[in-house]
Simulated assay, not measured.
Amino acid sequence: MSTGIALHQARVRYGPLEALHGVTLAAHPRGLTVLLGRNGSGRTTALRALAGTAPLSAGTVTWDGRDVTRLTPHERARRGLCFVPDRQAIYGTLTVRENLGLSAPKGDFAPALDAYPELRALLPRRSGTLSGGEQRMLALSRALLAPARVILVDEPTQGMSPAVASRTYELLMALAPDTCVITAEQRLPPGVRERASRAAVVVHELRRGEVVFSGEAAELAERPPPGP
Score class of each variant (00 low, 15 high):
228 P>E: 10
135 Q>G: 08
191 G>L: 09
141 S>P: 06
79 R>W: 04
201 V>A: 11
20 L>H: 15
131 S>Y: 03
123 L>S: 15
42 G>H: 09
168 T>A: 15
100 L>D: 00
73 P>V: 00
62 T>Y: 05
77 A>R: 08
141 S>A: 13
218 A>F: 07
126 R>E: 11
112 A>P: 10
223 R>C: 04
27 A>P: 07
204 H>A: 04
113 L>W: 06
80 G>A: 02
30 R>E: 15
157 T>A: 15
199 A>T: 05
199 A>D: 07
16 P>E: 14
131 S>I: 02
77 A>W: 02
56 L>W: 09
115 A>Y: 08
95 T>K: 02
91 Y>G: 09
45 T>C: 13
26 A>W: 06
117 P>I: 03
152 L>V: 03
137 M>Y: 08
33 T>K: 09
197 S>W: 10
64 D>L: 12
65 G>H: 14
99 N>C: 09
68 V>K: 05
48 R>Y: 06
38 R>I: 03
22 G>T: 10
181 V>A: 00
101 G>M: 12
189 P>K: 10
207 R>K: 08
212 V>L: 09
198 R>F: 04
21 H>S: 03
180 C>S: 13
162 P>D: 08
101 G>H: 11
20 L>S: 15
53 T>F: 06
76 R>G: 01
6 A>F: 10
158 Q>T: 11
167 R>P: 04
126 R>S: 08
142 R>N: 03
96 V>C: 02
84 V>R: 05
75 E>D: 14
34 V>S: 12
226 P>R: 13
98 E>Y: 04
4 G>R: 06
16 P>V: 12
140 L>T: 09
7 L>P: 02
185 E>G: 04
42 G>P: 07
143 A>L: 00
134 E>C: 05
99 N>A: 05
119 L>I: 09
129 T>D: 14
103 S>K: 02
202 V>M: 11
139 A>Y: 00
56 L>N: 01
7 L>G: 00
43 R>D: 01
42 G>F: 10
127 S>P: 04
36 L>N: 10
180 C>T: 12
55 P>C: 12
140 L>E: 13
107 G>H: 07
125 R>P: 03
118 E>C: 03
58 A>H: 15
106 K>Q: 14
134 E>W: 06
151 I>W: 05
221 A>Y: 03
90 I>P: 01
117 P>D: 13
82 C>K: 07
181 V>K: 06
48 R>C: 00
186 Q>N: 00
80 G>W: 02
227 G>R: 09
186 Q>V: 01
99 N>Q: 08
175 L>A: 09
132 G>M: 11
190 P>W: 03
103 S>F: 14
122 L>I: 00
102 L>D: 07
25 L>M: 14
198 R>A: 15
146 A>Y: 01
18 E>A: 05
190 P>M: 02
34 V>I: 15
162 P>C: 05
178 D>E: 15
63 W>H: 04
30 R>F: 10
21 H>D: 04
